[in-house]
Amino acid sequence: MLVTLERAQIIDHAEKLARMVIESDIVETYRHSLYMMRSNKETQRKIRRFVELKERYEEVERFGRYHPDYKTVMMNIRRAKREMDLDEHVANFKRAERDLQNLLDEISMLIGHSVSPNVKVATGNPFFETSHQGGCSVGGSCSCSVS
């Protein structure tokens, strides 16, 4: 494959963008919250408990409500999930993870639309999928341009 000047410039710009992301405050916050979550013993205990109960839940789920321990397992896993989710370190990590994902989604949209406004970029975030380019499922009643 021939390396043209244009391709070399694109690669150079991509590397600069990657460095900017890696050195951003958002990534620093993500790394710090990940470290705090992994290094806190109480947080890790809550995560381990949830994982253990999740394995038990998957076993019980095969039989559904006909399993004799169904209600007990369902109640215990909900409590463990709530306890884990309310943990300060888990909550901070999830917030940082969401912020980083939003940054990456936004960059993907900018890059994709710089190629063409018709490029579809899978972000997994409904916020970025509200442009209605090409119409929607309600026949234009949302005032989008139906193609």
Rank of each mutant, 00 (worst) to 15 (best):
L2R: 13
Q44H: 01
L86T: 04
P68T: 06
F93S: 01
E58N: 13
D69L: 06
L86N: 08
K120S: 13
T123C: 08
V121C: 09
D105E: 12
A96F: 15
E59V: 08
R78T: 06
H32C: 12
M36E: 15
I111K: 10
D105W: 11
A8P: 00
V90L: 12
E42D: 10
C136Y: 02
C144P: 02
N118K: 09
A122T: 13
S114L: 07
A8N: 04
T123N: 04
T29S: 09
V138I: 11
M37L: 15
E61T: 02
S24F: 00
G135D: 01
E88R: 05
L103E: 09
R7E: 07
S108Y: 02
D69M: 07
S145I: 00
F50V: 00
C144F: 14
N102Q: 08
R45C: 00
C144N: 09
P68K: 05
E15S: 06
M1A: 05
T130F: 14
R79Y: 10
I47Y: 12
G64Y: 06
E58M: 06
R38N: 14
S39G: 11
R7G: 08
L104M: 08
S137T: 11
L104W: 06
S24D: 03
C136P: 01
A80E: 01
T130C: 07
A8T: 05
Q101N: 09
S33H: 02
L86K: 07
I22T: 12
G112M: 12
K41H: 14
S131Q: 15
L53A: 01
C136L: 04
M36Q: 14
R31L: 15
T130W: 12
M75V: 11
M109H: 04
E88M: 10
K54C: 00
T43K: 11
S108V: 05
I22H: 11
Q101M: 12
A14H: 15
A18G: 03
S145K: 03
R79C: 13
H67S: 09
H13M: 15
K94Q: 04
S137C: 01
D69T: 04
T4Y: 02
H113W: 14
R19N: 13
E55F: 02
E59T: 07
L103I: 01
S116Q: 03
I22W: 14
E15T: 03
L17D: 01
R31I: 08
E58T: 01
M75P: 06
M84H: 04
E52R: 00
H67A: 02
T29C: 05
H89Y: 15
N76T: 00
K94D: 11
S131P: 01
P117S: 05
T130L: 15
F127W: 15
E55N: 08
A96S: 14
S116D: 12
